[in-house]
Design a protein around this nucleic acid. Structure first.
Lengths: 109, 109
DNA sequence: TGTTTGTATCGCAATATTACGATTTAATTT
DNA sequence: AAATTAAATCGTAATATTGCGATACAAACA
């Protein structure tokens, strides 16, 4: 035990959960906000910005890259990271459709 | 080490991350979708619906309740759960504002 | 080629999450 | 009061995440 039983759920449910997981850490939120603001940056910028160790920052970048929501290209000695607008849009739309319309009345119990 | 360094980040960043964490499991996505569809249900319904053990299901309900996104009221022998529309709206709005507008061009690097 | 610079990866420790059987708790029913 | 029912909690095992120092790697530069 200990591992999520993904086979019990639909692909969509696992997708949404994985998207949520990708942004379920304040450092990763901070990275994404920084990228949205600055458009692009290198790992070193984020080490200064976040206050986490280089290894830790790199690890968070890796997770965001694995999730597809950011992309990085080699820029000389450093790596330039930016939002992947296509995947970002997917996130936006999936969360949007998930939170769409709840019964507005509310008092169910 | 091992614990998130919340003090490095803003309240808003921690808030968004915590909201994401609350829905970062397919079982909790499934619970919320079920609640949106059925409007209300009891724990036993979800045990049948999800295929997870009663203890596990109850634990996921507890996390959603701790996050504030659902509420439960005692209904005889069982407990009736439903979405907390106020908090749901907050989630919707916070995610919305987070994903708002990215640079539409995209090719930054 | 050797050095510098910026990142990624490895290895490890601390902590958190997921899952479930067993038990407890609380309200109803007999 | 005893039995039943539904849910919460406890205890524990397996796995995942977070964080960092140390090291490896790759590109630019001397």
């Amino acid at each position: 035990m200990g591992a999520t039983k993904t086979d019990l759920f639909t692909k969509q449910q696992n997708d949404i959960a994985n998207m949520a997981k990708a942004i379920a850490h304040p450092a990763r939120i901070a990275i994404l906000q920084y990228l949205v603001k600055k458009n692009a940056c290198v790992c070193g910028d984020l080490v200064d910005e976040l206050g986490l160790a280089q290894a830790t920052t790199s690890q968070h970048l890796k997770e965001l890259k694995n999730a597809g929501v950011i992309q990085g290209t080699i820029e000389g000695v450093s790596v330039c990271y930016c939002i992947n607008p296509k995947v970002w849009k997917q996130y936006k739309e999936l969360f949007n459709s998930f939170f769409k319309d709840v019964s507005p009345q509310g008092d169910c119990c």
